[in-house]
Design a protein around this nucleic acid. Structure first.
Length: 222
DNA sequence: GGCCAGGACACCA
DNA sequence: TGGTGTCATGGC
């Protein structure tokens, strides 16, 4: 089965996911940092606090004290670290682009990715999420869900690196922002609902093609 | 009460 | 380069 066929199966089941849930590129970036290893529901509480304090712009966040920021994003967990990460981003934005996010995001793909990765607190997944969902660059975002789903399908090794897994997709799919957007969102949806650490293979649309399911079901049969 | 969530970094061998 | 500990709230 091709990656596009797999995509269509997920899309038929779950429909469009309308990612990224945000009102501005800057909100995408803040959300991408806050959601690191954190349930999105908790991120929404933190984002709501920031909105209430009118702090969801580069300028306002830049001027906000780190203490206040820490307090506002508390529901998102890891709040001390994440406050430093958000501060590191806006400080970089002001130092390198005079606070102009549009200028920063308009850079060529490779240059922007290297710059994002140079900022403390932004790793490969967060950088790629920003590239795809804030800057609209054709970058495939992979995450723990992607690795779990595709290793269980038997299509990649569970020890595959981030870059290797990303290559796996970019070599096999057309470079489309729209496709990459929806595909990643669908994988997250499928990972949350079905392909969990304790999987719900009984309701999995991919079970027929899944090595993990075939092994576990044949083991039950014996 | 334990598990898990839309990771990244520091430190170590 | 790869493995491990740390960061932390909140829902199920």
């Amino acid at each position: 089965m091709s990656l596009l066929q797999l995509y269509r199966m997920l899309y038929d089941v779950y429909g469009p996911q309308h990612w990224w849930p945000a009102n501005s590129p800057f909100e995408v970036i803040v959300g991408a940092i806050l959601t690191q290893s954190t349930n999105w529901q908790n991120v929404e509480r933190a984002l709501e606090n920031l909105k209430q304090h009118n702090a969801l712009t580069p300028e306002r966040l830049y001027k906000l004290s780190e203490e206040k920021l820490t307090e506002l994003i508390r529901p998102a967990g890891y709040f001390r670290q994440k406050a430093k990460k958000l501060k590191a981003f806006v400080k970089h934005l002001y130092a390198q682009h005079d606070g102009d996010l549009h200028t920063m995001l308009a850079q060529p793909l490779k240059k922007l990715r290297a710059e994002l990765l140079s900022i403390w607190g932004i790793g490969p997944e967060t950088a790629d999420s920003i590239m795809l969902y804030a800057a609209q660059k054709p970058v495939f975002v992979v995450d723990t869900y992607t690795k779990r789903i595709f290793s269980r399908l038997g299509l990649v090794e569970p020890t595959i690196s981030y870059e290797e897994l990303q290559e796996f997709f970019t070599q096999r799919l057309p470079k489309s922002v729209k496709l990459f957007n929806e595909y990643h969102a669908l994988l997250v949806r499928h990972g949350k609902e079905v392909c969990r650490p304790k999987p719900r293979c009984g309701q999995c649309v991919l079970a027929r093609d899944c090595q993990f399911y075939r092994r576990s079901s044949s083991a039950v049969g014996r």
